[in-house]
Amino acid sequence: MANIREIAKLSGVSKATVSRILNHDKTFSVSDSTRKRVFRISSQLNYTLSNTSNKDSVEKLHVAIVNCLSPEQELRDPYFSMIKNGIDEQAEIWGMKIALEIRLPNTGHDWSELATCGAVIVIGTLMESVLDKIYQHNQNIIIINDPRHFEKYDIIRNDFGYQTQQVLDLMKAKGHKRIAFIGGKTNLIDESSVSQILLMDNREKAYLEWMKLNNFSEFTDPHITKGWTTEEALSVTQDILAEEKQPTAILTASDPQAIGVYRAVQKAGYQIPDDIAIVSFDDINMVSYLYPALTTVRPAAQEMGREAINLVRERVVDSRKVALQVTVNSILIKRESL
């Protein structure tokens, strides 16, 4: 049940102001717009002065998360950890509570619990059948990090496709055309299993399109690993270096993969970037220990999480029904590996 503190946060005024407005204090001077905003938000949150309501009513300031990553995967990947941090921080600012988290694939969860929350944030790539099931219980759905288009759901995504093109343009400007790409697979997640259906990562897609548009098709060399690990990237790079015609540049989809590439390239006696240039995505803390320093794309992952809560607020407070697609821009951090 909403309280005065929560209404105050969402209205952008003090608790005392909310209290005096809701109690129709005639001695209190406040603008008509503020008064109307407080009444509108309190009404939308089903607030009453007695602070009682039907026990089965939806708690609009409660948020549910449906997460496609295990706790271990989330801890290993700073990108998703930062998204969760952003969600938590912004939820606290707006007086919202993460009341429920369902991790998939899993069995035994009760989808009807989602109906008790104001909105559902999905992190990752779910089968459409699962999204439909969530929608049956809660129509306020915000999806983070899914490249697909949906008409009913809000989508928050990064700009990795655009950044891939920018990086490749820089490589071309430095004379590179024999450019290899190392990425990973993205599986759709079902309720109880990891589907065999794959989504092409935006970085891989942008790489293939860019190589074709720049008439470098004969040099196109993508390598997609089962996971996104350092060990897999190291093994793949060793295979690449064993080829008769080696690339002069390697673009990796993540910094952990770039670390594997560094190990393989330097172990083989090649110099970075003189022999092989390397660029990556993530800008995790560990890359500061690489030599030479890694050029990488830093995503605004925490901002993606914050924006998810902002979209939740628009849904539950402003009653927005039209679905939005939000792209959060990243930053290319230029260092010595290119």
Rank of each mutant, 00 (worst) to 15 (best):
I7E: 02
L10G: 02
G12M: 06
N23P: 00
T27G: 06
F28T: 09
S31A: 07
S31R: 09
T34C: 01
F39K: 15
S43I: 01
N46P: 01
N46A: 11
E59I: 14
H62P: 01
E74Y: 05
E74A: 09
A91W: 03
M96V: 03
E101I: 09
P105C: 06
T107Q: 12
S112L: 07
S112Y: 04
T116Y: 04
L126K: 09
V130M: 12
L131Q: 05
D132T: 07
D132M: 08
Q136V: 09
Q136M: 12
H137F: 07
I142S: 04
I155M: 14
T164S: 10
Q165V: 03
L168K: 10
F181W: 08
G183L: 14
G183H: 10
I189K: 15
V194Y: 12
I197R: 15
K205I: 08
E209Q: 15
W210P: 04
N215I: 02
N215C: 06
N215Y: 10
F216P: 01
F216D: 08
I224K: 11
T225M: 10
T229Q: 09
T230Y: 09
A233Q: 13
L234E: 15
L234T: 09
T237G: 07
P247I: 08
I250S: 07
T252I: 05
S254W: 12
G260T: 05
R263L: 11
V265C: 06
Q266E: 13
K267A: 11
Q271V: 02
D274E: 13
M286W: 05
Y289N: 03
L290Q: 01
L290W: 00
Y291V: 08
L294H: 00
R306W: 01
E307L: 09
A308M: 08
A308T: 00
V312S: 10
R315P: 04
A323N: 09
L324H: 15
L324M: 15
K334T: 12
S337L: 12
